[in-house]
Amino acid sequence: MIVYAEYVLLENFIMNYIILHMTSKFSKYPSKKYKLLIAAFISALYAFIIFIPSLHFLFTVIMKLACSMVIIVLAYTPHKFKDFFRLLGIFYLITLIFGGAGFAIFYFTNFNGIISNGIFYTTDVSAKNIFIAGGTAYLLIHFVWGYITDQVKKDKIFLKVKIQIKDTIVECVGLVDTGNALKDPLTNYPVMVVEYKALEHILPLEITDVFSSSKYPSLEQLSEIFNHNEWITRIRMIPFKALGTENGMLIGIKPDMVFIEKDQDVKNIKDIIVAVYNNELSKDGNYKALLHPDLL
């Protein structure tokens, strides 16, 4: 059987680019188009190893994994290990679905091909079959991914939270947010983000006046008010990063105690900072606080 090199390169380049693009889309990790094109082209060259016996050691499992990692770095340049392994996992998931869809299409169209060292080579591939396989895989991923994310949303953990300062306690519903990694730079205590409206009744009049007049009051504003007040020892500045905000600051307050209720259990937490968020955390009002995962 004759295997045409240009077909091998074209097939792999198209499918690899689609897979890399889909990985970026479903991981919500942005990447430059030229990076995806370069990574897709280099990964397409991997199939040519079959023609070079001296490079057949690259067909081992460890080398295949290493090559996959290189492709992820080339395509996305992740700066954190967490992002790197998340991209790698999604990349493999999408690759498996695309591979299954491709094999199904080729099977039902009576393809002629061979499998060598885990790589599939076909001689009668057509643009039509490539796009049918790609389209089928896209639909599978789209609907399956949507179902999975819906199930994850349903399983979000909502807990009852009570915040105490002196003799006053306020209650609200908190969502355990695995993306909340905020910590107080001064004490390294975990930070719980709470809507201002949920805390309004527990704060002194001086603080509520500041938040009413300014959406994001500064530490200087609060320092002027509490320069000779015991509340100054409770005030913290919590730096944060978010989409569109590189060097944000939240006003934090040290409560006397926070109670987190889960089922019949109540956890009392003293080493914690409550960051005041002068906006809505949930559009539908299901929760008023974001809990740091370390609190559980």
Rank of each mutant, 00 (worst) to 15 (best):
L295D: 06
L9V: 14
G118I: 01
Q264Y: 11
V70Y: 04
F57C: 04
I50M: 06
L58E: 07
E246Q: 15
A242V: 02
I71R: 06
A198D: 07
Y29I: 15
D263Q: 13
I52S: 11
I269G: 14
L290M: 11
I50K: 02
V8A: 15
L295Y: 04
A5N: 04
T23P: 13
N229L: 06
V3W: 00
M63Y: 10
I14D: 08
I207K: 08
N110D: 14
Y189D: 14
L243C: 08
A275F: 00
G134R: 10
L182E: 07
F106V: 03
E195Y: 07
N12T: 11
F91H: 01
G285W: 02
P53S: 11
I50R: 01
K241N: 14
I114Q: 12
V125R: 04
I72T: 10
I163M: 02
A101E: 04
I165W: 08
N117G: 07
T245C: 14
M192D: 10
L186R: 04
A66E: 00
L159D: 08
T77N: 14
K160S: 12
I232K: 15
S68I: 07
R234P: 05
V258Y: 08
K25G: 01
Y138H: 07
S223H: 05
L159Q: 13
L219F: 09
I19C: 06
I157M: 09
A133K: 08
I19P: 07
T149Q: 15
Y277F: 12
F59A: 04
K154T: 06
L186E: 07
L159E: 14
A275K: 00
L203R: 10
L37D: 02
V266E: 11
L250N: 09
N180E: 03
A181D: 14
I2W: 09
I72E: 05
W145G: 01
A242R: 09
A104G: 12
L20I: 14
K156P: 00
N188P: 02
T178S: 15
S43D: 01
V210R: 12
E11S: 07
N180T: 03
D184E: 01
E280P: 00
G179N: 06
E6L: 10
D83T: 05
I235G: 02
S54Y: 15
N110M: 00
V125S: 15
P239D: 11
F91D: 00
T109R: 11
F226M: 08
F91A: 01
D177S: 08
F106D: 12
L139N: 09
L37G: 02
K25T: 10
N16W: 06
V125T: 13
D124E: 09
I273N: 06
Y34D: 11
F84G: 00
D209E: 11
K270I: 01
G252M: 02
N16E: 06
L296Y: 13
I269E: 13
A181T: 14
